[in-house]
Design a protein around this nucleic acid. Structure first.
Lengths: 207, 207
DNA sequence: GCCTATATTGAACGCATGTGCAATACGCGA
DNA sequence: TCGCGTATTGCACATGCGTTCAATATAGGC
């Protein structure tokens, strides 16, 4: 006995949300049509009516996770920092704090990452987003290199941007398995490594 | 019609090797009793005779992968470096080169990592190994802090060791999906960040 | 108020998987 | 040579999965 009709866009949102909740808490392996349908409060057939197949559902879940994970926001407070290197450090601090504050989301992100290695469809969705994220670091990386050319004799802006992103990824990976990771302690060490030794500026504050 | 008997230890090695080959190339999801048995050249029943269950097989595969992945070798050439910070940089370079040279192994490692978040059995096997790996960085981290106390005012040896390991993990994660990653370019940027600005030493060479 | 397109249901099918098990072959000590 | 414990086989079973589909309820145009 079919129930009341609901707008397609709302149904799709409910399904994606249900799939995300299951994937983020129990892993991708636990995402089944039946469980997703049950959590979304509908029948299994309806899920496959709105999403043609399970693969399609997973791919749209990838898009949904990426849209809320790999968007780099460079706020005015960061742009206002005069020293390029300090600006980069501040941006690193922001991203590490942001990504490590949602271990469940990062955990799913990396599960997709691993899945993308053997699943061409997932890989095709993730690669452009990741490239865009790294590219967002390029302007600041260029400024850092221009400010201190002697310090980076063999470094390209792309290389420095890649290093920054790698550092963020490492932090996110670590925080997945260690939710109590002390980000401040972490940043203090990173800051010491990055900053010029004779510096006496105050530690970066995380908002 | 059963075949010739073979020593149990050899059988177990064959099974683990077959499981590793499948997992490293097609992902953990592709590891099934049947496929592992086929690749190892035996029947499905025999696999479950030597390993009581599939979970048991996977757990032993975890051990096998960890044994050849998270062992930190600090050679004499690195110990001979006078400057603690240069020693740390050299060790980072060695580990990044080592781990990124085997993307298939790292890929499986991180798949276990993700699996450990929802599978307590896998987590219990990995956690001690990872702690040991990080602990291996502690002596060098202590030396770095002792050599330049002004540079790291709020940093503990554990914190610095965690940062070093995180950087390595980030590099390994990156190289998984991007096998053509230019490690040298990567290291040049990292070196510029880590080293004291007026330095004029030669780039670190990777063996 | 009917009628058609669409949404929705739940059962059914086919397939792959983990596991159990009875039958059988092997190697070794007596 | 015989017998016994162990290794080995391949099939059968139950389960869970993705997917299909006929039946049915809903909403909106006429």
């Amino acid at each position: 006995m079919p129930g009341t009709k609901i707008a397609e866009s709302i149904r799709r949102e409910h399904v994606i949300a249900a799939a995300y909740e299951i994937a983020a808490t129990e892993g991708l392996r636990a995402v089944t049509i039946r469980d997703v349908a049950a959590r979304a409060g509908m029948s299994t057939g309806l899920v496959l009516f709105h999403f043609k197949s399970k693969d399609q559902l997973v791919l749209e879940l990838v898009d949904w996770v990426l849209a809320t994970t790999t968007a780099l926001q460079v706020g005015r407070d960061i742009l206002a920092i005069a020293s390029p290197l300090e600006r980069l450090v501040a941006l690193l601090a922001q991203e590490m704090a942001r990504l490590s504050s949602e271990p469940a989301r990062m955990r799913l992100f990396f599960e997709f990452w691993a899945a993308g290695l053997s699943d061409a469809g997932i890989r095709r969705r993730m690669q452009p987003e990741l490239d865009r994220y790294r590219e967002a670091f390029r302007p600041i990386a260029e400024a850092v290199l221009a400010a201190e050319p002697d310090r980076f004799p063999h470094t390209t802006p792309d290389g420095l941007a890649a290093v920054a992103v790698t550092f963020i990824k490492g932090c996110a990976v670590q925080s997945m398995i260690d939710p109590d990771l002390d980000i401040n302690q972490f940043l203090a060490a990173a800051e010491g490594l990055l900053r010029r030794p004779p510096s006496m500026s105050a530690p970066v504050s995380i908002t």
